[in-house]
Amino acid sequence: MTKARKILENIFSRHIFLLLTMLFVFMPIYWALVISLKHEKDIMQKPVKLLPDPATWENYQFVWNKTGFSKYFINTIFVSGLSAIVIVIFAVLVAYGLSRFRFKGKKSFMLIFLATQLVPYNMLIIPLFLIYKNMGIIGSLTTLIITYTTVLLPFNSVLMKSFVDGIPIEMEEAAMIDGCNRMGVIFRIVLPILVPGLVAIGSFAFLSSWNEYIFPVMFINNKENFVVSVGLNFMIGQNVLMYGPLAAGSIIALSVPIMIFAYIQKFLVHGLSAGAVKG
């Protein structure tokens, strides 16, 4: 009786909740996948079919070939990838400086640095627009890379500082006694230990750039330079909603973040939790 109760408790406390959570999280994705594989006429059909029967790839073909998604996809990878790389490079240097040096106004700097994160993106649109226009780069992907780097760098730098704080300074001192200079210390000692942090911050920056919508829709005027988040909204008009292509586009847009998460989840969870407790 006690043993059976223990088994039941075990199932209830572990598996039931895990299953329910999984169901809750995966249901929208499953539904988007099903709709993306249905013919347009079947999507609204009653009774609702839980599986696409007959299944079709036409929504994927439409989105990829007809709406310019193939181009938007490459643009998004380019913008998000480059933004993430730039953010990681700067975040490491900023974090190292904040962690290892004492200087006047450090606390105020940190405060102002973090305060920039409280400014709503919508407030930045017109000032940034005018700056980019005067620079002559409005409409180009460069505007997005600069913007993402600017708005994502403060948070990521502070996050990276927690990782750098966790590295014992004695290791750097030992290297310096052996003749290593400051840059050598950063590249030879700090960076190899920081790998989980680099992955965590790189992926966070990549995904934030990937999902961003308001900056590309405002700064880009040429459809050749649009990104996936904007492309998805092409399927939602004032008087028309293309469920099938929208679902197919969502699945395509979701594929890259899912693959990234699958690959880096170990680093990410470890990295974020390590950063969270050491600070």
Partner: peptide
């Protein structure tokens, strides 16, 4: 895209673009 269309036009008029 329709949902941000008015905002986009407003911004473009305000910035002469």
């Amino acid at each position: 895209p329709w949902d941000t269309s008015k905002q986009k036009f407003d911004t473009s008029i305000a910035t002469n673009t």
